[in-house]
């Protein structure tokens, strides 16, 4: 009976916590334990693959919301949200013109938690804005200045990738909004100098007098759409780019971006 009492008293949250923290499993996973001492706090930062993106100590002013606006972190988190919801949406979406639209309707009408689509779409919009604001802040604090010139360049490419990710995703619901936004957007590619069939210089690229090389089936826009209009191939190309190509490149560059933040001295501040 008294043993039972002991057992019960041991079941208090605090003791239970202690017991868990002493277990081999816990210690094998969380090497450091609860970071209650400065040393442990530092070891946590060093020992965790995710947390070691950050330095062990940061400047006070550097983490003030007033200074950073938290926009870079928000952008990264939105990227993760979009990856997660996007992965889930891929279970119900078929990138063919027969099914793309009705699959989206089904996400709205019958798929439980079809709200994933809303989170994905609004998250994408939010990410574009947060990227802009991030760059705005970086400029206003002059944080692109040496030694961070290269990382600013990587950031510019990430901005472009964000816009392209959003742009390619815009087509996938295959409704009027999607098709015509992409038509308007992709039509600009046909005016690419030399590489677009309505671009300046394209009609100079001929073999002899009258064998033109750049036509609507061999220009930059075709490379983007896989056809002369926004059709089935365009849907597939955008899908592949949206789900595989661009995220891979963006992920790669993000790794570079984060690494360089550390290498270039963390969050910027006055020298």
């Amino acid at each position: 009976m008294s043993q039972l009492k002991d057992l019960l008293s041991n079941l208090s949250p605090a003791k239970l916590g202690e017991a868990i923290q002493k277990s081999q499993i816990y210690r094998s996973v969380f090497r450091v334990g609860v970071p209650v001492s400065d040393r442990k706090r530092m070891l946590v930062m060093l020992g965790n693959v995710f947390l070691h993106l950050h330095p062990v100590k940061v400047r006070k002013s550097g983490i003030r919301l007033r200074f950073t606006w938290c926009m870079g972190g928000i952008t990264f988190f939105l990227f993760l949200v979009l990856t997660f919801t996007g992965l889930l949406l891929m279970f119900y979406y078929r990138p063919t013109i027969e099914y793309a639209y009705v699959d989206i309707i089904d996400l709205r009408e019958q798929v439980p938690l079809g709200i994933m689509r809303e989170i994905h779409r609004w998250g994408a919009h939010a990410m574009v804005i947060s990227v802009w604001l991030h760059m705005f802040r970086v400029f206003m604090t002059g944080s692109y200045k040496p030694p961070r010139e290269f990382n600013w360049g990587v950031g510019v490419i990430l901005l472009v990738l964000t816009l392209l990710l959003s742009f390619t995703g815009y087509l996938l619901p295959w409704d009027q909004l999607a098709m015509w936004a992409i038509t308007v957007g992709s039509n600009m590619a046909r005016a690419t100098p030399f590489a677009g069939y309505e671009g300046p210089g394209a009609n100079l690229l001929t073999l002899g007098e009258n064998i033109p090389l750049i036509s609507s089936t061999s220009d930059a826009r075709f490379a983007l759409l896989g056809g002369t209009r926004v059709g089935e191939m365009a849907l597939l190309r955008f899908y592949v780019l949206h789900c595989v190509g661009l995220p891979l490149v963006a992920g790669f560059l993000m790794a570079v971006h984060f690494w360089r933040i550390r290498r270039d001295g963390g969050i910027s501040g006055p020298l």
Partner: peptide, 13 residues
């Protein structure tokens, strides 16, 4: 920003 620069804090927490 400079006012606090010297004053570093632990990333965790």
């Amino acid at each position: 920003e400079k006012e606090e620069t010297a004053d570093k804090v632990l990333t965790w927490p």
